[in-house]
Each structure stands twice: as C-alpha cells, then as structure tokens.
Amino acid sequence: MMKLSLRMPVLLLVFLFTSGFVVATEIAFDPQEIPPLNERALLAHQQGDYRQAARLYQQLLPMVAQHFGEQSRERALILSSLADTQLSLRQYLQAEEYYQAALVILQAIADGRGQAIVLNGLAASLYLRRQYGKAEPLFKQALELLEQLPAPDVQNRLLVLDNLASLYKTIRRNNLAEEYQSRANLLRQVTQGPGQPADSQSR
C-alpha cells in the first residue's frame, strides 16, 4: 500500500468579539483562552505528541461551540484538526466520525475549500483501512471542489493529486496513477518554476 500525503492541522485564526468570562451550564471560560490553546494543540501535533494534541482539541471543542456556535466554521476547523490527530494515532473510525461532523457544517455554510480538505482526510482514512472503493470518489470530489475555487489552492491540490496517484498505484491501475502523478508534477513545475526542487510527494 502506497503512503499518502497528509496535511497538518490548521491554526485556528479567530477574532474574539467579547471579553470577560462566558458562563454556561457546564463550563466557564475566558474566550481569550481559545487561540493559545489551539496553538498548543497544533504544536503538540507538529512535535508528534498526538495524544496531547487530541486532549487539547477535545478541550477546545465545547469552548469553540459555545463561543462561535455549534454550526460555526471555527467548530468545523477544530473537528477537522481533531480528526487529523486521530488519523495520526491510527484511530481511523474516530477520525472518520470527526471528519463527517466537520463536513456537515462546511456543507451547510458552503465552504468549498474546507469541504475539500475534510474530504481528503476522510478519504485518506478510508484508504488506510483499505476501503479503496470508498476512498476514490471522495478524493475525486475533493479535487473537483479545489479546482472550482476562485483562488487556486496549490498545496491542497497537490495533496489530493498525489493521494489519487497513490491510490491507483495501490490498486494497480497504473494508467490512472501515471495520469494523476503527471498532473501533480506539472502543477509543481508551473508553481515552483524551473530549477526549483520538487516537494516530497508523501510524508
């Protein structure tokens, strides 16, 4: 089975419109705690401490839901980052559950880029569980959404193209594998220019 290109969780960039403490039935917290807690979670993931990252994202979820709303983009980003962390822990079913929850929100708010990123993660989890037939259409849907964006998102397009190439290599559909790998290589050449080193295709 070929290795996939996986993304890192994203830094949650938020603007806090209130000050002081928010008091709810179950938790009381200062909204200003959200950005540094998210930064700690991201750093833990980058350092390979996935369990700590997962704990921090779990801590963030009720805070973000309470401050921004259950159906907010900010909550979807935390769900997606938590899913990425569970994927790194090889907790595939949990990762897929979080990806699905994030996807519902992002579809409701018509965030095409966010949907593509989550679909790529969901497809990667299915791929790693050898559910290739389920992963394939999700990778393709992610690529289609990215190609429809008004502003190009080269980094995520490369991730999905590389993942499609890996998928087709794994299931021995070599013509399609070569097609998507060629598209990825061409995109790298166009965006990096001549003489620039190519990015690694997986990590």
Rank of each mutant, 00 (worst) to 15 (best):
L61M: 10
P36N: 02
P62V: 05
N185E: 09
L143C: 04
Q58W: 12
D111Q: 08
I27F: 10
R188A: 03
S5A: 13
A76L: 01
S88T: 08
Y92A: 04
L61N: 04
N156V: 01
S125P: 07
L149H: 09
V10N: 11
L186C: 05
E33D: 14
S80C: 11
V14A: 00
V64W: 02
P194L: 04
Y168W: 06
L13G: 13
S80W: 12
N38H: 03
F68W: 06
L103W: 03
N185H: 04
V10A: 12
A108T: 09
P197Q: 05
A65C: 09
A83Q: 00
S80N: 15
Q141R: 13
L43V: 11
T170R: 03
I171T: 08
Q46L: 12
L167K: 02
E96D: 11
L77R: 11
F29Q: 04
L37D: 00
A24S: 15
F139E: 01
L159D: 09
Q94R: 12
F21Y: 15
A28H: 12
S19T: 13
R90F: 11
Q192W: 12
P36M: 04
Y98H: 10
Q47I: 09
G112P: 13
I78K: 00
H67L: 06
Q47C: 10
Q94D: 13
Q59T: 12
P31W: 06
E96R: 12
H67R: 07
Y180D: 02
A24Y: 13
S72D: 00
Y99S: 02
G48H: 07
A165L: 01
H45G: 00
R157K: 13
L16F: 08
A101M: 09
Y127V: 02
R130Y: 14
L16I: 10
Q47L: 12
T170L: 03
V104A: 12
A110E: 15
Q58I: 08
Q141S: 12
L128S: 02
E26Q: 14
I105Y: 06
I109A: 03
I34M: 04
L164M: 03
A41D: 01
K140G: 10
S88V: 05
R55P: 03
L87G: 06
D162Q: 07
T170K: 08
E144N: 13
L158V: 03
D30V: 01
R203A: 10
L16T: 08
P62L: 00
P150T: 05
E39N: 11
L89T: 03
M2V: 09
L158K: 00
T25L: 13
Q155G: 05
L89C: 06
V104C: 05
A53I: 07
G69Q: 06
D84W: 09
A184I: 00
Q100R: 15
M63T: 02
V118W: 06
A151L: 14
T85P: 08
